[in-house]
């Protein structure tokens, strides 16, 4: 009898754990097309949505998407409000001290400058970037005057209304905008920043990191990651 109770208790415990572990909450920003954005029906969509869903399928996890403000995206991960950050976040040493990253699922970010005219001074002028991004720290290191905005969209608006001379952001985000608008010009070659984009996880969450790493490896091996990159980023060759 005792044994029966014990084994039921153990069973209940393990199923409890299995249930609790199985749902992985995916934190994203939802304001950075084509990486991640809220589509017209109000759902998270984009390159990272597809990559994330595929990773979850391969790692046999049930995933749920959550959006969070960029400013508080790391504190909310470490305090456990969601389990991953998959929001176009480049792997940098600074961030690596607070959270862990999986291997990159996107190569070092080519970034570009966009300006309202073709002759701007990128070293001495005023340049906009999103707060807390690698672009912002890069602008600060070039000697240009940095103006920070909460969302990438506002950096483009600042260029257009003349508040700043240029904006620096991911090429994948800026290029479609510059192509669509006749008053915006790409004024630089690709600037490579960071060590690629990875999935952010808590430092203590080694198990989840391992699972995601394995899933990313398998996506790189069978070429499905390349297919997704080519689908969402116009004119970009899959690098893996």
């Amino acid at each position: 009898m005792k044994r029966l109770i014990l084994s039921t208790a153990a069973l209940a415990l393990t199923t409890g754990f299995a249930m609790a572990q199985d749902v992985v909450r995916m934190g994203t920003e939802g304001a950075y097309p084509p990486y991640n954005f809220i589509n017209d029906s109000g759902e998270v969509d984009g390159f990272e949505r597809e990559v994330g869903d595929e990773l979850c399928k391969r790692a046999e996890l049930t995933c749920e998407w959550v959006t969070n403000d960029w400013d508080s995206i790391i504190p909310n991960l470490t305090s456990g409000n969601y389990d991953t950050i998959i929001a176009g976040m480049s792997i940098t040493d600074e961030r690596d001290q607070v959270i862990d990253f999986t291997q990159p699922y996107f190569p070092p970010d080519p970034s570009i400058y966009v300006a309202a005219s073709e002759d701007v001074d990128l070293e001495g002028g005023v340049v906009a970037a999103q707060t807390g991004t690698i672009q912002a720290s890069h602008v600060a290191s070039t000697g240009a005057t940095l103006v920070e905005f909460a969302t990438p969209d506002e950096t483009v608006a600042a260029v257009r209304n003349g508040e700043v001379d240029a904006a620096l952001a991911d090429k994948g985000f800026l290029l479609p905008i510059a192509n669509a608008e006749s008053d915006l010009y790409v004024v630089s070659d690709d600037v490579y920043l960071g060590d690629g984009i990875g999935v952010g996880v808590r430092e203590s969450d080694a198990e989840l990191k391992e699972k995601l790493d394995a899933a990313i490896t398998s996506m790189k091996e069978d070429g499905s990651l390349n297919t997704l990159i080519e689908k969402w980023f116009e004119g970009m060759k899959g690098p893996y």
Binding site: A31, I38, G46, D153, P176, A180
Partner: peptide, 11 residues
């Protein structure tokens, strides 16, 4: 802010 921001052809 989200709805008003400029939308590329991805939307």
């Amino acid at each position: 802010r989200e709805l008003g921001g400029s939308k590329t052809a991805i939307y």
